[in-house]
Write a protein that binds this DNA or RNA. Structure first.
Length: 221
DNA sequence: GCGACAG
DNA sequence: ATCTTGTCGC
């Protein structure tokens, strides 16, 4: 699972995509985890963070941060090979594995239908959802301004994900299947995890941790 | 052929 | 992703 060339990495993605399960396959959620990777010293150090929250209260249950040398530079389409290894290592150190992962980055919204969330979901075996902050591929109809509004994203005649408005009059997020979940359920969970801010609470906490911040970002100020 | 391109 | 202050608005 450690490709030396982009071609080898692409070959791995094409194998992993066959293992992606795009239907709900998990027990009632008790915990959801946000995963994020930040970088320091201008890309030399990768900082992997995981925030495990209880569901649906979204109260922090466990968090963890680890630092490792950065494998290689970012290549569009191959983000997972740069960030999945450190997250896998962090996951293995948790007291108890989360019931579902909310990833920073796309899942099925990917040129080969195997973005970060699919990749991490398959190799970890855990249910996963992709939540990206900016568009990557595909097109969609205009989106309503109210919280909860969403539109499917199409690419090559296929629905690959959805643009979802998590807060009224705020930029939407891009949601897609990672592993062991349907797009419909993924949208529902993302909305439940983002009751107050644009990004899911899981992602916000993991992001805070990966940036070395110590004080929790407020959920109820 | 010429850009665009998650984090 | 990261480099970076103040500033406009609710």
């Amino acid at each position: 699972m450690n490709p030396t060339t982009p071609e080898a990495a692409i070959a791995i993605q094409q194998e992993l995509r066959k293992q992606v399960v795009m239907a709900d396959d998990f027990k009632p959620l008790q915990t959801v985890a946000g995963v994020d990777v930040g970088f320091e010293e201008g890309d030399r150090i990768a900082c992997g963070a995981i925030a495990v929250l209880r569901y649906p209260s979204l109260q922090m249950q466990e968090s963890l941060v680890i630092r490792r040398p950065t494998p290689f530079s970012y290549i569009p389409g191959l983000l997972a090979f740069r960030e999945v290894p450190i997250i896998l290592e962090a996951l293995a150190s948790l007291k108890s594995p989360p019931d579902l992962l909310l990833c920073d980055g796309n899942g099925y919204i990917h040129p080969r239908r195997c973005g970060f969330a699919c990749h991490l979901g398959v190799v970890s075996g855990l249910p996963a959802i992709g939540v990206a902050k900016t568009p990557y591929i595909g097109k969609h109809e205009p989106l309503g301004a109210e919280r909860g509004a969403w539109q499917p994203i199409y690419d090559a005649g296929e629905i690959v994900g959805a643009v979802v408005r998590t807060q009224a009059n705020v930029k939407p997020v891009y949601v897609s299947v990672g592993h062991r979940i349907s797009l419909e359920t993924a949208i529902e969970i993302v909305l439940k995890c983002a009751p107050k801010y644009r990004l899911p609470e899981t992602t916000r906490q993991a992001d805070r941790l990966s940036k070395g911040r110590k004080t929790p970002v407020s959920l109820q100020p």
